[in-house]
Structure formats: structure tokens, C-alpha cells
Computed example of a mutant assay.
Amino acid sequence: MLVLKDLTVFHGPERVLQSINLTVEAGELVVLLGANGAGKSTLFHTVSGLVKPAEGQLHFNGKSLIGKSPAQVVAGGVVQCAEGRMLFSQMTVQDNLKMGAYSYKRNKKAIATQLDYVYELFPDLVQKRNASAGSLSGGQQQMVAIGRALMSKPKLLLLDEPSLGLAPLIVEQMFSIIKEVNKEGVTVLLAEQNAYAALSISTRGYVLENGRLSVEGTKEDLLENEEIRKAYIGA
């Protein structure tokens, strides 16, 4: 479904990603592990059309994404849920969710159907639908952020650090929902520092270090890799 081949990205004079080769098959849940500053968000921004690569190829379902606007990328089925949630804090939960339906904003029936789906996934949001997004807890805000991305009807969902700043029990709940979304047919590329939680629901994974992919393998391979355990999981 997604193919990155020899992808290199600069931020000004600095090379942020170098010769990235990564694939995601339809139906997979693939984890991209890496510390802060490794280049995970830059990779996602490049796939989303927010950043232009200097070199390499980037294909989704056999078609190049290079040169596509972010709106065209979303319309084609690739949707990013950004790190930090990026909600409109003064708007209600429901209005934030509806922002994700921008590409079909005139189809009220389709919006209502997708809202029902999101509220079924995140029942905690039902009673909060008319509350301002800024008044919610961190976990609830993350639910809104993921729900808004799902409102765009993604074929491929890019999730950037969804567990950041959340309590362990909320992280467990969040990852359970992500796994359910994947089981229902949405392919997921998940960028995370919480390696154990992410790998527990994944198909396989990659490790990004200083802009380069250093390791790839099944979740079992990565969980058993001593260097990865020391760096991301602990003894």
C-alpha cells in the first residue's frame, strides 16, 4: 500500500531523513520506533504532503504522492493524526470531529454515519460532544484527535505518538482501540516511543535513528533485540 524508496528529506541545510526504504502492506499495523528528533514526524509530514522530499520515491497504492497537496493526499485515503493532538480548543468536541469530514462536508448523512462510528469507538466522548475540546482530559483529547482523523475515512492512518503524556491505563485503552480500528480494515503506521505497548499490537516494525532506518523486523524480532530492549523497553 505504502512504499518509500531511497527517500531523503532536508530541513534547510540539515538532512533529516536519509535513504529511507519502508513499506506498509494493506491491512498491516506497522510500528515506527524512534527517540525524539529521530525523524518520525518528518517522515509522516512527507507522506502527508506537508514536506517535499529532496530525493527518492513515495507511492501509495501504486501512485506517486510527490507533488500532491495535503488535501489531495487526504482525499486519496492517507490521513495523519499529528503529535500533540492539534485540536481547536475553543470549539466543541463534535465540531472538532466534523473538521475531519471536510472532504465530504456537504454529505450530512455520511457525516452522521461516521460520527456514530467514532462515538461507538470512543463512548467517553458522547456526553462530552458539546463541551469545548480544551476542557477535556489529555486522554479524551487524544480520543478526539484520533476520532477526527477517522472522520476522514482513511485507508492508511498515520498515528504520531498517540500515547504521549497519557497515563498507563489510558495508553492501554488507546492501543486497544487502535488495534480494533486496524482489525476493521484501516491500515496503520504508528510512530511511537512506547515500544512495548506499540509492538504488542503490531504486525512488524522499523527503528529510526538519526534519520536512518537501523533495524526492521517482526514484533518478535524487535522485542527480542537486546539493543532495542535497552533503548526503548528496559531490561
Results as ranks from 00 to 15, higher is better:
Lys109Glu: 14
Ala195Met: 11
Ile170Arg: 03
Ser48Asn: 15
Val31Leu: 04
Ser202Glu: 08
Tyr102Thr: 02
Ile20Ser: 01
Cys81Met: 14
Ala75Phe: 08
Asp160Thr: 03
Val9His: 05
Leu32Ile: 04
Asp95Pro: 00
Val186Tyr: 05
Lys5Glu: 00
Phe10Lys: 15
Ala198His: 03
Val16Glu: 02
Val207Gln: 01
Gln127Glu: 15
Leu169Lys: 04
Gln90Gly: 15
Thr23Ala: 10
Leu43Cys: 12
Lys230Val: 09
Arg212Gly: 13
Ala235Gln: 14
Gly67Phe: 10
Thr92Met: 02
Phe88Met: 13
Ile146Gln: 00
Leu169Cys: 06
Leu156Trp: 01
Ala82His: 15
Leu208Arg: 09
Ile201Asp: 00
His59Leu: 13
Glu83Arg: 06
Gln72His: 10
Tyr196Glu: 15
Pro13Met: 06
Lys155Gln: 12
Val9Ser: 02
Ile201Lys: 01
Phe10Leu: 10
Lys40Ser: 13
Val144Trp: 02
Gly37His: 15
Lys105Val: 08
Ser48Leu: 14
Val186Asn: 01
Val47Pro: 05
Leu157Asn: 01
Leu65Pro: 08
Ala131Ser: 15
Ser48Trp: 12
Gln193Phe: 02
Ala35Gln: 14
Val93Trp: 03
Thr187Cys: 03
Val3Thr: 14
Glu14Asn: 13
Glu192Gln: 02
Gly211Thr: 07
Arg106Ile: 08
Gln127Ala: 14
Gln193Val: 02
Leu125Cys: 03
Thr203Pro: 08
Leu159Thr: 07
Ile111Asn: 08
Leu32Lys: 02
Gln72Lys: 15
Leu159His: 02
Gly211Lys: 12
His45Cys: 11
Leu58Cys: 08
Ile177Asn: 00
Val16Ala: 13
Asn225Lys: 12
Leu213Asn: 09
Arg148Ile: 00
Ile201Arg: 00
Lys98Tyr: 11
Gln72Glu: 14
Gly165Asp: 11
Ser89Phe: 14
Asp221Gln: 13
Asn36Glu: 12
Asn225Ile: 11
Leu115Pro: 10
Arg129Ile: 05
Val31Phe: 00
Glu180Cys: 09
Arg229Asp: 09
Leu158Trp: 01
Ile233Val: 15
